[in-house]
Computed example of a mutant assay.
Amino acid sequence: MYDFGGHGTGTAGSITSSGKQSYGIYTNSTKYHILGVAPGAKIVPIKALWWVMRSMDGSGLLDLTRKKINGSILEILE
């Protein structure tokens, strides 16, 4: 699976960051360890919106997205 825009990959990294890597954010020499909001979370890659946005005119978007996500979860649990 490929994240064409990089949005999902960046979001997943921000949410699950364990804070082990240090980053220089500002122009000073201080390094920061940034902990995500759910560092112990497991990531399940689901390409839902990409499929829906390219196959619909926007009507039924929420329902189709829900079906795609539910189907992917059921696949993982089997």
Rank of each mutant, 00 (worst) to 15 (best):
G60I: 04
K47N: 13
D3Y: 03
V52A: 06
A41W: 04
A48G: 02
Q21Y: 08
S22T: 12
H33K: 09
V44Y: 03
G19H: 06
N70C: 12
I46C: 12
G13V: 07
N70D: 15
S59W: 06
S59F: 10
V44P: 00
N28L: 04
I76H: 04
G24Q: 15
G24D: 12
P39A: 07
T9E: 13
G19K: 03
G40A: 09
F4M: 12
L64S: 06
K20T: 15
S14Q: 08
I34W: 04
L62S: 13
S17I: 07
H7M: 11
T16V: 12
M1D: 13
L35F: 07
I73R: 01
H33M: 10
I43D: 05
F4V: 14
I69E: 08
W51G: 01
G19P: 01
T9S: 14
D57I: 02
L64N: 11
G71R: 03
G36V: 00
L49N: 13
N28P: 02
P39C: 05
D57T: 03
S18P: 00
V44A: 02
G71N: 10
K42V: 13
S17N: 13
L62N: 10
L49W: 07
H33S: 13
P39T: 03
K68F: 11
K20F: 14
E78P: 00
G40V: 03
M53R: 08
S59Q: 10
G60W: 07
H33T: 06
I34C: 03
G71T: 11
K68S: 15
N70P: 00
S55M: 08
I69G: 03
I15G: 03
E78A: 00
K20C: 11
M53Q: 12
I46M: 05
G13P: 00
Y2V: 15
K20Q: 14
S18G: 07
A12S: 08
L74Y: 11
N28G: 08
G8E: 09
K68T: 15
L74A: 13
K42Y: 12
L49E: 15
G19F: 02
H7T: 15
A38C: 04
Q21K: 02
S22R: 05
S18L: 09
F4Y: 12
V37L: 12
S22W: 09
T30G: 02
R54D: 15
N70R: 03
L61F: 12
L77R: 00
A41C: 02
K42Q: 12
D3F: 04
D63N: 00
S14N: 06
G24S: 08
K68I: 14
V52E: 08
R66Q: 14
I34A: 02
W50P: 00
W51Q: 12
Y26D: 14
Y32S: 09
M1T: 13
K42I: 10
A41D: 07
S17K: 02
M56N: 11
K67P: 04
G60L: 02
S14E: 15
T30I: 08
I46D: 10
T9Q: 10
T30K: 01
T16E: 10
S72Q: 13
N28D: 15
Y23K: 00
G60V: 05
I46T: 14
S55K: 06
K68G: 08
G71E: 14
S17C: 08
Y26Q: 06
S18K: 09
L35E: 13
S22K: 10
T27E: 14
G10K: 01
K67T: 15
H7N: 13
